[in-house]
Nucleic acid binder design. Sequence first.
DNA 1: CCTTGTGAAGTTATTCACAGCA
DNA 2: TGCTGTGAATAACTTCACAAGG
Lengths: 208, 208
Amino acid sequence: MLGRIPKRTITRLTLYYRGLAESRRGDFVSSNEMSKLTGFSADQIRRDLSYFGQFGISGRGYSVVGLRKKLIKILGVDKQCNVAVVGAGNLGSAMLKYGGFEEHGFRIVCGFDANQGKTGRSIAGKRIFDFSRIKKVSRRLKIKIAILTVPAPVASVVARKIVESGIKGIMNFAPINLHLPTTVQVLNMDMGISLQRIAFLLKKGGYR
Amino acid sequence: MLGRIPKRTITRLTLYYRGLAESRRGDFVSSNEMSKLTGFSADQIRRDLSYFGQFGISGRGYSVVGLRKKLIKILGVDKQCNVAVVGAGNLGSAMLKYGGFEEHGFRIVCGFDANQGKTGRSIAGKRIFDFSRIKKVSRRLKIKIAILTVPAPVASVVARKIVESGIKGIMNFAPINLHLPTTVQVLNMDMGISLQRIAFLLKKGGYR
DNA sequence: CCTTGTGAAGTTATTCACAGCA
DNA sequence: TGCTGTGAATAACTTCACAAGG
């Protein structure tokens, strides 16, 4: 167990966690059942879990409760993580209004915007601060991750300032490549690119 | 050239295209310059491009115009692709209002919602149709891709109906695993999972 | 029987390294 | 010299297949 963990394993673990939450029947769940639930192969699931120790029972499977706890611990879902939305436009506002992250341990605590017309007021009970104050506010509110929803032309500059403020994780919705220090974890959610990938796969008939 | 193209190559091609659009100086661009622009290795870039034929010039690099045209052709950006938003809530409305997809060849033509209070009217000039009409409307408007922004509990059912209506590409924002026929291309944009991945990498210090 | 966990094999993707061209 | 394009080597990841446990 626990050599080097493949990157994709982490993504899958979140999906196992999700899948486990969906079905809640029986005390034990086998890798085969998990496979049907998540679409990944049973082999893969066992391998992924084995990176973190052995907690399955031969002939039975994994204790649902135990597996759940394990995944929570691995993924750190037990700890609260505060998140801020940077850019209170259409998409940013939608994020602020969406409450679905809480159950996974993430709390959107506030927004930031550079536009005077948006700062000061609240959206879904979350205050929109002036972006210039991000350093102080994010420190005070212990913000660990920023959701970046500003327009593409300013995204690079804004991202750099986010990093300067001490935030080390960014979920980037702007359709550009931010290049930031490798100490910063950036995850791109570029919808244009996603549409292009889908379109390409449709044209090509997918990978069979 | 052109054996089997790695899946990830497609994702990268869209990023090369994007990177190319960002810098527009000089007639030629080398794989090394592209590397700095996109963050992928020059080797990787050359390999990826070589799957689609040889159009670089030794000692100079790739013609910016030529490469751009090639990428457009490979990715099919030249063709219009019509998209619908299914679920006109906060996120769906934000999508309808966002105009940034057009330049990449995607046009959001309409929305669908099952809620009487939302159907009939328009958002950002795009009509919201009753979801029950999706089959006819999507056929008439030649919709190829659906952006799924309905709440998680109904997402499975809605997705199935989308597929029945003949749409074969789905960008899924609902935080659940849709399992659909393999002929359907699904791309998950689960923000909860993305946050978890970022949080995990922050904790672990990333992959160096 | 049914399971897990894991070496070994197989597959896929990336990097190395260099011949050949401008 | 500076660059591409690509075999060969390497690394990363997944699947096979089976011993061992229940």
